[in-house]
Nucleic acid binder design. Structure first.
Length: 292
DNA sequence: CACCAGGATGTTT
DNA sequence: AAACATCATGGT
């Protein structure tokens, strides 16, 4: 089984990276994480600086976990206030995952206004129904559904995956993109603002989903996704944050405050959201209620 | 039972 | 442009 020894300066925490809610098809099983990404069924484990895995090449693994980028330098750059400083201390080693574009976009259309465990089950159902069956070392798995598979799918069969009102969004977007091969390369070639406008035309893709996709799949670090948690953190813990009203005000604040790696700052703040490392498991407990 | 979740859409001001 | 209702589902 292949192994990779991280350099001492190559900060990486596999647990934080896979459990923080950026990807939905990984499960922890004992010491191992098992998941499907792209066409790969991967098992991976970390013991200190040692990564052991199978199911993908070394090049693929390093690319997926962005092991090539200088995380300590990014963290020094975004370490600009006490709130993000705390998040960096608690979540050091968290890396953004480099996700396949459609897999990321389709997943986040399914992820709107739902909790992470629910999202994971929905996506598992969707892959079970419409994913392509693949096989690795005797065990079978299913990839994330292709654009074609979802475009061809019966609308009501997508609804059976418990997607609710998101089902027609996913269907329409798949039909639009399957007629537009080259969408991915076009988006990749555009600057952030232009790429954003293009993707916003897709059904089920709003301000937050588009920023997740540009950040997680296209590596545009100026994207600063604002969900309910980030909104709370900005409004309750940042000076002047209470005055931020619209999505764009909060996203611009993030970019102005954190700079070119704002998206990384966002992910650290999200990872350190209320109680996620403690017993609250992500449930929101207002500041004022548990003071004494 | 009420309320919330990695929100988007369509309508009304 | 900003505020608002509505949407489907499952967990707490």
């Amino acid at each position: 089984m292949p192994e990779l020894l991280l350099r001492p300066d190559q900060a990486f925490d596999l647990d934080l990276t896979l459990s923080c809610g950026q990807v939905f098809r990984w499960e922890r099983q004992g010491d191992w994480w098992r998941g499907v990404a792209g066409t790969h069924r991967v098992s991976v484990r970390q013991e200190g600086r040692l990564l052991t895995w199978n199911g993908a090449s070394r090049r693929w693994l390093a690319g997926y976990f962005r092991l090539d980028e200088d995380l300590p330098a990014i963290l020094r750059d975004i370490d600009r206030d006490p709130v993000v400083h705390e998040a960096i201390q608690k979540c050091r080693g968290l890396r953004l995952v480099r996700q396949p574009a459609w897999e990321c976009l389709g997943s986040y259309i399914c992820a709107t206004y739902a909790s992470i465990p629910v999202i994971k089950r929905r996506i598992a159902l969707l892959c079970q129904c419409f994913g392509e069956q693949a096989d690795q070392e005797g065990e079978t798995f299913r990839t994330f559904p292709s654009l074609q598979a979802l475009a061809d799918a019966d609308a009501c069969r997508i609804t059976e995956c418990r997607l609710g009102y998101r089902a027609p969004y996913l269907h329409e977007t798949a039909r639009a993109l399957v007629e537009d091969p080259g969408w991915e390369e076009r988006i990749r070639s555009l600057p952030y603002g232009e790429a954003r406008k293009e993707l916003l035309r897709l059904k089920g893709v709003g301000d937050k989903v588009v920023d997740c996709v540009l950040l997680f799949a296209f590596g545009m670090y100026e994207a600063f996704p604002v969900d309910v948690w980030i909104q709370r953190i900005l409004r309750e813990r940042y000076p002047g944050g209470a005055g931020l009203r619209t999505y764009n005000q909060m996203a611009r604040f993030g970019r102005a405050h954190f700079g070119e790696y704002a998206g990384y700052a966002q992910e650290y703040l999200y990872c350190n959201r209320a109680g996620i490392t403690g017993r609250e498991r992500g449930r929101y407990v207002p500041e004022s209620q548990d003071e004494r």
